[in-house]
């Protein structure tokens, strides 16, 4: 039996050995625990990379945990960070609800929590120290405003909604509807979930283009770039010209949609900046120096369309 147990011990030791090497350097380094949602898109990967690289650059020890889209995993991770005694916890929450207890626990342990990407609903103020990130409702509004300014006040809109019930999907829908509310000529005539993926986006768009209302659709609003990229393929296969017959607006700002905009197959993307690493560690270092930290940091975000995208812009982007 011993022999077989050693089979188990070996990989476990391998797992911990790299950790051991890191610990030897001295104990004065700042430790930050970071609970990331997952690795579901290029956007998310860019966000993770930005934080990891910035931590390495500044000599901060980062404890990274991937929650694979599950809130329960994020709660476990935060509790594990508290048990380990990290200095600061960074959290990119997968939903806005359900964080009260664990944030109180962190407060009881005197560990500040910094939110990234998304705010949370809590019962009292002061459960989190700082919030870094844009707001998805505002992105929806920006998309709506771009539409009014660049396309006009008459259009039939098809909407590709993100994962039903997820924060960005709800907020981007809300913001967009707010922005176009004052224009009776702008109507959302089709709305269906594309689950934030290219394949679903394409499949749903194919059906939009076969509906009796197909000739009225001249704008597509997709809650993220991936669904828009799938839809572009569906539009081309239907013999229409994406970007011309149907104006395409989406959110996030990944490299591939920039290429499409440059090629004239898409029209606009509302940036949602994932490169929050520098902002995060500025706040962390401020806190470690004992200074007060700002309650809100807004990363720089743009709206991109054919006017401000060039090959240089694309080459300069890392995701």
């Amino acid at each position: 039996m011993k022999k077989y147990l050693s089979l188990l011990i070996l990989p476990l030791l391998l797992l911990v050995s790299c950790k051991k090497a890191a610990e030897g350097e001295g104990s004065k380094t700042i430790t930050v625990g970071f609970s990331q949602i997952g690795a579901e898109s290029d956007w998310r990967k860019a966000s993770t990379l930005s934080i990891k690289e910035e931590a390495k650059k500044r000599g901060i020890e980062l404890k990274f945990s991937d929650a694979q889209q599950k809130q329960e995993n994020q709660l476990k991770a935060i509790r594990a960070f508290i048990a380990q005694g990290v200095d600061v916890i960074a959290l990119a929450p997968v939903v806005t609800t359900g964080w009260d207890d664990v944030l109180k626990e962190a407060r009881a342990a005197n560990i500040p929590v910094i939110l990234i990407d998304r705010r949370v609903d809590v019962s009292e103020d002061g459960l989190y120290a700082c919030y870094i990130g844009a707001d998805c409702t505002e992105e929806g509004r920006k998309a709506g405003r771009w539409l009014i300014e660049n396309v006009g006040k008459q259009a039939g809109i098809a909407e590709l909604v993100g994962t039903v019930g997820s924060g960005p999907a709800v907020e981007r829908k809300k913001g967009f509807e707010e922005a176009i509310k004052g224009e009776p000529g702008l109507k959302i005539i089709k709305s269906q979930s594309g689950d934030f993926t290219r394949s679903q986006g394409k499949e749903v768009m194919e059906q939009f283009l076969k509906s009796p209302e197909r000739d009225q659709i001249n704008v597509l609003y997709a809650h993220n770039d991936d669904m828009a990229l799938g839809a572009i393929q569906a539009i081309e296969e239907a013999g229409k010209k994406p970007g011309k017959d149907i104006v395409i607006i989406s959110c996030d700002g990944v490299k591939e949609i920039f290429r499409q905009i440059l090629a004239g197959k898409a029209n606009c993307t509302v940036e949602c900046n994932p490169m929050v690493g520098p902002y995060l560690f500025d706040v962390v270092e401020t806190y470690m120096r004992g200074e007060t930290i700002p309650p809100r940091v807004i990363p720089h975000e743009d709206v991109f369309d054919a006017k401000n995208i060039t090959q240089e812009v694309i080459d300069g982007r890392s995701y």
């Binding site: 476990l12 797992l15 911990v16 790299c18 950790k19 890191a22 625990g33 990331q36 997952g38 690795a39 993770t48 980062l62 404890k63 990274f64 945990s65 991937d66 694979q68 476990k76 991770a77 594990a80 960070f81 380990q84």
Partner: peptide, 11 residues
């Protein structure tokens, strides 16, 4: 918990 304590494993 082991993976979280290790804290250096990517997704």
């Amino acid at each position: 918990v082991l993976i979280m304590f290790q804290g250096n494993i990517n997704s």
